[in-house]
Nucleic acid binder design. Structure first.
Length: 424
RNA sequence: GUGGACGUAGCUCAGUUGGUUAGAGCUCCGGAUUGUGAUUCCGGAGGUCGUGGGUUCGAGUCCCAUCGUCCACCCCA
C-alpha cells in the first residue's frame, strides 16, 4: 500500500507560523557576529567523508555510527556534514585563508546526524558556528565566549550555566590519559560495559558517564587539571581571568570532555536546566592542532557551535519577544471599477514605502469576508476600496486594532498617511 | 542501538466490558434586509479512527507488524 508522504524521520518542516523566531535569531546573530568583526562563510552541506573522519575523529560516535554517508555516481564517498567546523577549516585551507593570518568567521546551516530523535535532538538540525583562526592567545578564547554571551543577551534568553574546562595540549593530555587508563584499569571490574569499552578507545569519555557506579570510581580518578603542563595552566588561568574581567560567570567542570577529538586547551559548554536531557545549547573550545591535521599550515583555532532548535525551544519557553512579521495593512477591494485601481495602488504603495507589508485581497469575496481575512492575518489596518471610493479616487483607512476612527484618504495622500500611521 | 508511553477531523481532545450512518470545542467557509472584522445566533465543509495484516457474525476499541511522535538511556548542539 502506498505509504503516506511524510518528512524523513527526525527532519522537520518550519512553517510560516513558526518562522518568526528563526528569522529573528538569524538577524540578531548576524548583527552580533558582525559587531565582533566576524565574516560569514557559506559552505556546501556535503563534503568528502574523509574530511570528517580526519577532523572529528575516526572512533567518535558521530563518525562511527551517525553520519549520512553515501557513494556518489563517481564512486566517491561523501557525507552530509555532521558538524560545521570541519568544513570551515577545509574551506579556510583551500582558499588560503589560514596562511599566516588571522581569520574571524561564522557560518550557519543544517547538519545531519543519524540518531534516535527526541525533543531537542533531530537528524537534521541547525547550528550557528563561530570560529577564530590564527590566534593562539587566551584572549580570543574569551572573545569567542563573550560572543555567545552577547548573543544570549541580545536575544533575551537567560538561565545558562557556562561550564569550563581545559584539556591542555595533546602531550599533556596523553600523560593524563595514561594515568587515567592506569587508574580505571585497576577498577575495571566495577565499570559499566560502555565505560570498559571506552577504556580502550576514548578513555576521557568515561569521565562524563552517568552510570552511578562508574561515577563513584571517577570521583577518585586523577584530575585532568593536575596534569596540565605549565603553559596550558597559564593559558587556562588567563581565560578565567578574562572571563571574570568581563563579568561572565562560569563554573569549572573537570568532567567536561568533548565528544569530538580535535579539541585542545579550553573547552566550554553553555547548558540549561530548562530543556530536559538535551541541555547543551552551545559548545565549543580550542582546537590548535586541527588545521595542521587536515593538511593546512599549523594554525590555532577556537570556536563554538550553537544548536538552533534548542535555542529556539528555549526562546519559546522563556517567551522571549520576537518581532512579528504580520502584514501592516490588508487591502479590501470589490466592485467593478475598483479592483484594477486597487491593484495599481497596492503596487504604488509598496514601491513608495519599502518596509510596508501589504496584502492585497485576492479571490474575491464580499466586504465582510475580506475584513475577516484582514483581521485574521493580523494586519493593523484595512484599506477598503469599493466603487464609491474609487469614484472619488480615495480609499477608506480603517484600524483593526482600535487605533482611531476610520477615515477616507485620497490616493495621492495615502503613502504619507500610512508612513505616519505605521512609523515607516 | 536499548527501554517505556502514545498515534481518532487543520488544532486540542471524547469515544462505555468490541455492536447499527464516529462526536465536541477551536479553526475554516457561508448567512443573520442590500458595503464594514474581532462579540452573539444559525448553517456548512472537513476523518477509509497513522499504515498493513490478523482474531471475530461484527473492531476506533483485542493481537501482530510497520511508520511516526514523545520520554529516558546512549550520544551530542
Amino acid at each position: 500500500m502506498a505509504q503516506k508522504l511524510q518528512a524523513v524521520r527526525g527532519m522537520n518542516d518550519v512553517l510560516p507560523a513558526g518562522a518568526a523566531p528563526w528569522q529573528h535569531l538569524h538577524a540578531v546573530a548576524a548583527e552580533v557576529f558582525a559587531a565582533y568583526g566576524y565574516g560569514e562563510l557559506r559552505l556546501p552541506v556535503v563534503e568528502r567523508t574523509e574530511l570528517f573522519k580526519r577532523a572529528v575523529g575516526e572512533v567518535t560516535d558521530v563518525v562511527e555510527k551517525e553520519m549520512y554517508s553515501f557513494v556518489d555516481r563517481g564512486g566517491e564517498s561523501l557525507s552530509l556534514r555532521p558538524e560545521l567546523t570541519a568544513g570551515v577549516v577545509r574551506a579556510g585551507i583551500e582558499h588560503g585563508l589560514l596562511y599566516n593570518q588571522q581569520q574571524r568567521v561564522w557560518c550557519t546551516g543544517p547538519v545531519f546526524r543519524y540518531e534516535r530523535p527526541q525533543a531537542g535532538r533531530y537528524r537534521q538540525f541547525h547550528q550557528l558556528d563561530v570560529e577564530a583562526f590564527g590566534i593562539a592567545t587566551p584572549d580570543v578564547d574569551v572573545e569567542v565566549i563573550a560572543i555567545a554571551a552577547a548573543l544570549w543577551r541580545r536575544l533575551g534568553v537567560s538561565g545558562f550555566t557556562l561550564q569550563l574546562n581545559s584539556l591542555g595540549t595533546p602531550e599533556s593530555r596523553l600523560g593524563y590519559r595514561a594515568a587515567l587508563v592506569e587508574y580505571l584499569g585497576r577498577h575495571e571490574a566495577s565499570l559499566d560495559e560502555d565505560s570498559r569499552r571506552r577504556l580502550g578507545t576514548n578513555p576521557l569519555r568515561v569521565l562524563d558517564s552517568k552510570v552511578p557506579a562508574t561515577r563513584e570510581i571517577v570521583a577518585g580518578a586523577p584530575q585532568l587539571l593536575d596534569h596540565l603542563d605549565a603553559a596550558s595552566r597559564t593559558h587556562f588561568e588567563a581565560v578565567q581571568r578574562g572571563l571574570a574581567d568581563l563579568g561572565i560567570a562560569y563554573t569549572i567542570n573537570q568532567r567536561l570532555v568533548r565528544g569530538l577529538d580535535y579539541y585542545t586547551h579550553t573547552v566550554f559548554e553553555w547548558t540549561t536546566t530548562q530543556l530536559g536531557a538535551q541541555d547543551a545549547v552551545c559548545a565549543g573550545g580550542r582546537y590548535d592542532g586541527l588545521v595542521e591535521q587536515l593538511g593546512g599550515p599549523a594554525t590555532p583555532g577556537v570556536g563554538f557551535g550553537v544548536g538552533i532548535e534548542r535555542l529556539i525551544a528555549l526562546m519559546a519557553l522563556q517567551e522571549v519577544p520576537v518581532p512579528g512579521k504580520a502584514p501592516h495593512v490588508y487591502f479590501c477591494r470589490f466592485g467593478s471599477h475598483s479592483e484594477a485601481a486597487a491593484a495599481r495602488l497596492a503596487e504604488e504603495l509598496r514601491r513608495q514605502l519599502p518596509g510596508l507589508r501589504l496584502v492585497l485581497n485576492a479571490g474575491g469575496g464580499g466586504i465582510k469576508p475580506q475584513l475577516k481575512r484582514a483581521d485574521g492575518c493580523g494586519a493593523r489596518y484595512a484599506l477598503i476600496m469599493g466603487d464609491d471610493e474609487a469614484a472619488q479616487s480615495a480609499v477608506q483607512v480603517k484600524s483593526l486594532r482600535g487605533e482611531g476612527e476610520p477615515f477616507t484618504c485620497p490616493w495621492h495622500e495615502l503613502p504619507a498617511r500610512l508612513a505616519g500611521l505605521l512609523g515607516l
